[in-house]
């Protein structure tokens, strides 16, 4: 709750931190791990679920690094897709896991896969970087200029791909016009490939809301694209 760290000073926080002499420490020293659902079940029944890993990290915080090892690349990939510069994506990824670590006691352990939860935290952090997000969408719109030449050289490209390429600037502009709640949801589905259920978990909204919000978002995009047609 109020742990503070002294980065660079190793295991020596000197602060208001309560020194929790958790008996879990003795467990580290060799007490058998609880039978099921704990991180130690690796190797017996295949890898532990994210939920088991998170549960184990309540007693042994170091274990939380396992979640980073599993999902950091994926979260980073998503952040890097949504934000223009790599260092911001790096920051968002680092912060996502720190936030997750601090909130882990509130994780719903009935959810075996923690990715939706992590995506939700990352989405929040990404919305805090409006400028990098806007720059990304602008860059996406500009990349159209190079697309036609490229497309000519790749005849195997599908017609749909070419359509999307042609629409790229308009789509990027449409994305920029969405509310951040709409954009978060749309991109979790379209770019992170979350299912509706996972997206609902990530954003903490009911699946029904996911459907209605997506449908509204699609209509918005459609209208925007249509509005451009006459000038095209």
């Amino acid at each position: 709750m109020r742990a503070r760290t002294r980065p660079g000073k190793g295991p020596l926080p000197h602060d208001w931190t309560k020194r929790v002499m958790a008996l879990a420490l003795f467990q580290r020293a060799g007490t058998p791990v609880p039978p099921s659902g704990a991180p130690g079940s690796d190797g017996l029944d295949g890898p532990a679920s994210d939920a088991a890993l998170i549960e184990g990290s309540l007693a042994d915080p170091d274990g939380f690094a396992g979640l980073f090892d599993r999902h950091a690349d994926e979260i980073h990939r998503y952040a890097a897709r949504r934000l223009d510069d790599a260092s911001t994506a790096d920051d968002v990824t680092a912060e996502t896991f720190l936030v997750a670590f601090r909130k882990r006691a509130r994780y719903d352990l009935s959810r075996a896969d923690a990715r939706p939860w992590l995506y939700g935290i990352a989405s929040n952090l990404i919305s805090g970087h409006r400028r990098a997000e806007t720059r990304r969408l602008k860059a996406l719109a500009r990349s159209f200029r190079h697309a036609p030449e490229q497309a000519a050289g790749f005849e195997e490209r599908s017609a749909e791909r070419v359509t999307a390429d042609r629409l790229r600037p308009a789509l990027a502009a449409a994305l920029a016009r969405l509310s951040s709640a709409e954009r978060d949801l749309l991109l979790l589905v379209a770019w992170a490939e979350l299912t509706y259920e996972e997206a609902a978990e990530a954003l903490g909204i009911p699946v029904g809301t996911v459907r209605s919000r997506l449908s509204r978002t699609r209509t918005k995009i459609r209208r925007f694209l249509d509005s451009l047609e006459p000038h095209a």
Partner: peptide
Amino acid sequence: VARIRPDTAPYDPAAKAAARRGLAAASAG
């Protein structure tokens, strides 16, 4: 929208290591 998904550079190993260290520092705390 899925088709215009941008490609990304891989997670820089140094940045990744720094993030993991930050997490380790937090858990040590």
